[in-house]
């Protein structure tokens, strides 16, 4: 009910129940630029596998008993460097990847067909792509920009890896920097803009429903996830340029409650970095957030309570650089 300013304190239980290193995937020839989890399988059986990306290749790893991982397949992508893996929820035998030099220039799908036991590439989109997100039900939304205009588009994917349908979404004036699906609302999508606003779309009609300013406390916020509850829209944001303050520490994630009817907002929860441990790179899944600290540790938060629940210190082999 009340927006709390929670101090960044690591729960005592997190020290005891913190993250443990359970396995290592070693790929000495290729420094990792991204990692993601994917469902993979055949004949009705599927298991959670991992994909690691280097600039020129993607590797699929599967669990091997008892506690290790083996490389199942490698795709070589030598023409354009890999920038990121784009997770597509609820898909199987499919990896979506964004490629480019400094910015994303193309989005490709890599698909395995168990019927023909073969892999194939499919080019989904090209352009000067600023942001991309994979949504449930085989949908992908991206924003791209030319000198004159911005294009925001949703592509519905077919199981063979092609595009089944394309829906143009009305672009805001400002560049869209990130998208996030709204939990439990299939046709709603939120985005953040370069002008530090949250925008809301209707994915079915392509309408831009609302633009709501975030405020000046945390410039250039990035949205990760949104939930609609009791007539309010709760948006999980990270603050890549947030500054450390004495009272609140360094902000990692915040949950803002917006009233989409009026455009007004209030802070609902804030997750701060442990004192004296700056850091930024982060990711969100459901109501948990993770970030890499500059010290080389990984911190995990319960975003709705604004509490740091686990901390993984740097490993013997070095500092963590990326958390997914």
């Amino acid at each position: 009910d009340v927006a709390e300013q929670l101090t960044p304190v690591l729960l005592d239980s997190a020290r005891e129940e913190g993250l443990q290193l359970v396995s290592e995937l070693k790929d000495p020839w290729a420094p990792c630029v991204d990692v993601s989890a994917v469902w993979w399988g055949a004949g009705g059986r599927r298991e959670l596998c991992l994909v690691t990306a280097s600039e020129s290749a993607l590797s699929l790893w599967g669990p091997l008993p008892p506690h290790c991982w083996g490389k199942l397949y490698t795709w070589h992508l030598q023409e354009v460097p890999v920038i990121q893996i784009v997770p597509l929820p609820d898909t199987c035998n499919l990896v979506c990847v964004a490629l480019g030099e400094l910015e994303i220039g193309e989005i490709r799908l890599l698909i395995y067909s168990s019927e023909t036991d073969s892999f194939k590439h499919s080019l989904l989109k090209t352009g000067n792509i600023k942001a991309v997100v994979g949504l449930k039900d085989w949908r992908l939304v991206s924003s791209s920009r030319t000198m004159q205009e911005q294009q925001v588009e949703m592509v519905s994917l077919s199981e063979s890896g092609g595009s089944k349908d394309r829906q143009t979404l009305m672009p805001p004036e400002e560049t869209v920097t990130a998208f996030a699906e709204v939990e439990g609302m299939r046709e709603a999508l939120v985005g953040t803009t370069a002008g530090n606003s949250v925008v809301v779309w209707n994915l079915k009609t392509g309408q831009l429903l609302r633009k709501m300013h975030i405020g000046y406390s945390y410039p250039a916020s990035i949205c990760h996830r949104a939930y609609s509850d009791s007539g309010l829209l709760f948006v999980v944001l990270s603050h890549p340029h947030g500054k450390e303050s004495e009272c609140c520490g360094s902000p990692a994630f915040g949950v803002l409650a917006f009233n989409p009817r009026t455009g007004r907002s209030a802070a609902a929860a804030s997750s701060g970095l442990p004192p004296g441990q700056p850091g930024r790179q982060g990711d969100v899944w459901d109501t948990a957030g993770a970030a890499v600290l500059t010290s080389g540790a990984v911190a995990v938060w319960d975003l709705l309570r604004g509490r740091c629940t686990a901390l993984l210190p740097p490993g013997p082999a070095g500092h963590w650089a990326l958390a997914r």
Binding site: A3, N202, Q207, L232, L233, N259, R261, R264, A266
Partner: peptide, 23 residues
Amino acid sequence: CSESDLGPISLNWFEELSAEAPP
């Protein structure tokens, strides 16, 4: 977050905004 801070709340905000926004 109280209603006085955020203004009148509607459970059907998505449908209402979709009906009001330009097509």
